[in-house]
């Protein structure tokens, strides 16, 4: 029979020699391999204690930004949802009522805004499509959950709070949104 590779070995049931029956040389040879790796550079890091440096344009968990007066930038135009290749974004728009001018920047706002983080592929097209500089991807990682429902992020998780503002200055485009 012709072999496909030259790595095949003929198996024999020849009885082992005395040295082979001691097993010690084989054990030492194996231990040497193990010990050699102890002194090599590690490829992994001890994650929670030690964290890798993220690129400034890392595409992680989304944030819905507020402007400098704390009003939500998002106006529920739906461009992120239509740009989304994974169809992860859904929203319902509502009209701003008189007296809510300090909450929402524009006449229309997103009443609900949901991103399914299981669907999301973190491509950043929503950020690119946004005409209002409202949605940005950040260097935060989406935490693990046990239930599928918990991955559907609503406005409570996406909109930044005024006390803990998310810095996106490194990825902020300029000139898209006028401050009038």
């Amino acid at each position: 029979m012709e072999h496909l590779s030259n790595r095949s070995k003929v198996v024999s049931d020849k009885p082992m020699t005395f040295m082979e029956r001691l097993y010690l040389p084989a054990i030492f040879a194996g231990m040497m391999t193990t010990l050699k790796h102890l002194f090599r550079r590690h490829n992994t890091i001890k994650y929670p204690e030690e964290q890798r440096v993220f690129a400034p344009v890392y595409r992680g968990m989304h944030v819905l930004k507020r402007d400098e007066k704390g009003r939500e930038n998002c106006t529920a135009c739906g461009l992120c949802a239509v740009a989304c290749p994974a169809e992860a974004i859904t929203m319902v728009a509502a009209e701003r009522k008189p007296g809510e001018e300090n909450l929402y920047r524009e006449e229309k706002y997103a009443e609900t805004y949901e991103i399914n983080m299981l669907r999301c592929i973190f491509c950043g097209l929503c950020e690119e499509a946004c005409p209002k500089e409202a949605i940005f991807l950040t260097d935060r990682i989406v935490p693990t959950e046990f239930e599928r429902d918990d991955f559907i992020y609503g406005k409570d998780l996406l909109v930044e709070s005024m006390d803990h503002r998310i810095d996106i200055t490194k990825r902020q485009h300029t000139g898209k949104r006028s401050d009038k």
Binding site: A76, C77, G78, A81, V82, A93, A94, E95, K108
Partner: peptide
């Protein structure tokens, strides 16, 4: 239909 949806949805 005001603000109910976007035409492309």
């Amino acid at each position: 239909f005001r603000f109910k949806s976007r035409v492309w949805f």
